[in-house]
């Protein structure tokens, strides 16, 4: 599976034409590594990185602001002899820029951030705003990180996002530290943002995508449950291997262990499914699971069904297929 394209915003202050041109070239080269970088002028909101030139009069002030906002910086310095962490010498090449950008932006990736942080890292702001146990609210929350914009609509239990963005892409950026949030009115959203965010996804779809792509961000799942409804899931955000467990949970209550054993999928996958169901509010807590028998294959219907499932890449009835 391809790594999703991640979007970043790099702000610049005090760069001359030479360095600006090299920076832009370096940014465009990052696209080959599925990093889509937008260059913009400082000051701005939602920047992932600030690049400052040596001659900028307000360099001191410029650097103070991003430090306060925990934005990483890359300085072009006349005093630096060679490239270092966050510093490039005057006249740095496109390759130097490219290497520094890749390092600094990669450091702000969710996976890297998560690995570096301890286990008590805060719940991502998007998951806080979409939590099933959150107090109902009418306001709309606009979220921005780099070039990525989202809208959380708690009243409708949906998020709005750009047409080209998939939930998988959102999951990859969930725990970035540079998300900004603001409340907007319905009228402001319709007037200023609706055309940018035409796609709607339900909280359910979001949580099942998170369960698949970033299960570590979800709360501890219950030991057993049953699904209230068939979840709002999509082929682009969920693998086929989740369908049999979903169907069985839709039909009856199961424990994690029993379901993992029955479906022959890793227990961690089942735990992720349970966590997604629980966080999305679709789980019906069950004291104990109902014993379930495997359908007999001695009928023509079931033998045909087994072959049909195999044709579609499903493992249904596999133990009985001859």
């Amino acid at each position: 599976m391809k790594t999703p394209i991640r979007s970043f915003t790099v702000a610049v202050a005090g760069l001359d034409l030479l360095h600006m041109t090299r920076l832009k070239l370096a940014c465009s080269l990052l696209l080959s590594e599925r990093m889509d970088v937008t260059v913009t002028s400082w000051p701005c909101t939602g920047a992932d990185l600030l690049v400052t030139g040596p001659a900028h009069e307000a360099c001191g002030t410029t650097l103070a602001d991003p430090s306060a906002d925990a934005i990483r910086t890359l300085r072009i310095s006349r005093h630096a002899a060679r490239p270092g962490q966050g510093v490039l010498p005057h006249g740095a090449t496109v390759r130097d820029f490219n290497a520094q950008l890749r390092t600094l932006l990669s450091d702000s990736e969710p996976a890297a951030a998560l690995a570096a942080s301890d286990t008590t890292s805060p719940t991502p702001v998007l998951l806080q705003l979409t939590a099933a146990d959150r107090e109902p609210s009418e306001g709309l929350h606009l979220l921005q990180r780099g070039a990525l914009w989202l809208l959380v609509d708690p009243a409708r239990h949906t998020i709005a996002l750009p047409a080209s963005i998939r939930l998988m892409d959102v999951c990859q950026q969930l725990d970035g530290q540079s998300w900004s949030t603001s409340e907007v009115s319905e009228a402001d959203f319709l007037h200023q943002y609706a055309y940018r965010l035409p796609q709607r996804q339900s909280f359910e779809a979001l949580y099942f995508a998170v369960g698949h792509h970033r299960p570590e961000l979800l709360a501890e799942p219950p030991a057993s449950l049953r699904l209230r409804h068939w979840p709002d899931v999509d082929a682009t955000d969920l693998p086929t291997s989740w369908l049999q467990p979903i169907a069985l949970l839709h039909a009856a209550a199961w424990t994690q262990d029993a379901l993992a054993q029955h479906c022959q999928v890793p227990r961690a996958t089942i735990a992720s499914l349970f966590a997604a169901a629980s966080c999305s509010g679709l789980a019906l807590a069950q004291e104990r699971s109902v014993p379930v028998t495997v359908p007999h294959l001695d009928t023509a219907d079931n033998r045909f069904m087994a072959r049909l499932a195999r044709r579609f890449g499903l493992g249904l009835l596999r133990r009985s297929v001859t």
């Binding site: 068939w230 999509d234 082929a235 086929t240 369908l243 049999q244 979903i246 169907a247 069985l248 839709h250 039909a251 009856a252 109902v290 379930v292 028998t293 495997v294 359908p295 079931n302 069904m305 049909l308 499932a309 579609f312 890449g313 499903l314 249904l316 009835l317």
Partner: peptide
């Protein structure tokens, strides 16, 4: 195809139950 797979899984679970 995903929709058809969902239908088949649903049918399987119904029979299993």
């Amino acid at each position: 195809t995903f929709l058809v797979k969902s239908l088949l899984s649903y049918r399987y679970a119904r029979d299993a139950r």
